[in-house]
């Protein structure tokens, strides 16, 4: 079986027409393939997130991870760029939506595309995946333990994030939520509230809450990594994308 893939740094048009850096990983077969926009976590556009993009490519998806800190720190290492971005309070929501829209456009423009695009995001990217799915025309979205979907950041925190649950009425696609039972941001109560609102709105969604896991259980290079939850989570992701993104 021919299983070659190509992974490379590219430039895409992001919010406001800005050229931003992105990491594109795609199978080299003719397709058609679904596309996945990978939204990186606060620590940035790092090697582990690029590995996630390659994992999607190996499994038959074109995946692109836009560097959300391209403007703040062009050419800087991911950790230096993240330091600048976090000091500024994170990425503005409107700009994030524009950057994800640009990434989705670039995936749909691939000759191997089947026209379907989903998003997946981790940590702050989980909230951003939810936000993108409420703002853009997508086919599937995955929120991995995104905080501040239903609650505001604690007093004094300079994070420019506001609750976005009121946007759920505009959710354009099925949502998969993957959460740790021991996480406090989002807490199980917050996850239950998101579930309640989506159910009330009749929005298709599927939530998994993993016992013995807290925040960032997918992060293979961090002490928060929980292999059992991560393995089950990956299976849920490929099952979900298989239903909504695959040809």
């Amino acid at each position: 079986m021919y299983d070659a893939m190509l992974a490379e740094t590219v430039q895409i048009e992001g919010d406001g027409g800005d050229l931003i850096e992105a990491y594109l990983a795609r199978p080299l077969q003719p397709g058609p393939f679904g596309g996945v926009v990978v939204i990186h976590h606060l620590p940035g556009y790092d090697p582990e997130t690029k590995e996630i993009a390659r994992r999607f490519a190996v499994n038959g998806y074109a995946a692109i991870c836009p560097n959300l800190y391209s403007r703040e720190a062009p050419g800087a290492s991911p950790d230096d760029a993240a330091a600048v971005a976090r000091a500024a309070g994170g990425v503005p929501d409107d700009r994030l939506i524009g950057d994800v829209a640009g990434a989705a456009r670039s995936l749909r423009a691939l000759s191997s595309s089947n026209g379907k695009v989903g998003t997946i995001g981790y940590c702050s990217g989980g909230r951003q995946s939810f936000l993108a799915a409420c703002s853009l025309d997508l086919d599937a979205a995955v929120d991995c333990y995104g905080a501040f979907v239903v609650s505001s950041p604690p007093e004094g925190m300079p994070l420019k994030a506001t609750p976005i649950i009121d946007r759920a009425v505009d959710l354009s696609c099925p949502l998969l939520g993957l959460f740790g039972a021991e996480d406090s941001h989002p807490s199980p109560e917050e996850v239950a509230e998101i579930d309640r609102v989506l159910t009330e709105l009749g929005k298709p969604h599927e939530f998994h809450i993993y016992e013995g896991a807290g925040h960032a259980f997918f992060a293979v290079n961090r002490p928060s990594y929980r292999p059992e939850a991560a393995n089950e989570g990956w299976a849920a992701i490929f099952d979900f994308f298989g239903r909504y993104l695959a040809s």
Partner: peptide, 23 residues
């Protein structure tokens, strides 16, 4: 979150010179 220290959270200090770039 730290980048390198094997902890879930850490106290981080950055000395920066933005005029010379993020690096």
């Amino acid at each position: 979150h730290p980048v390198d220290l094997p902890e879930e959270h850490s106290l981080n200090v950055d000395f920066l010179a933005p005029s010379q770039g993020a690096s």
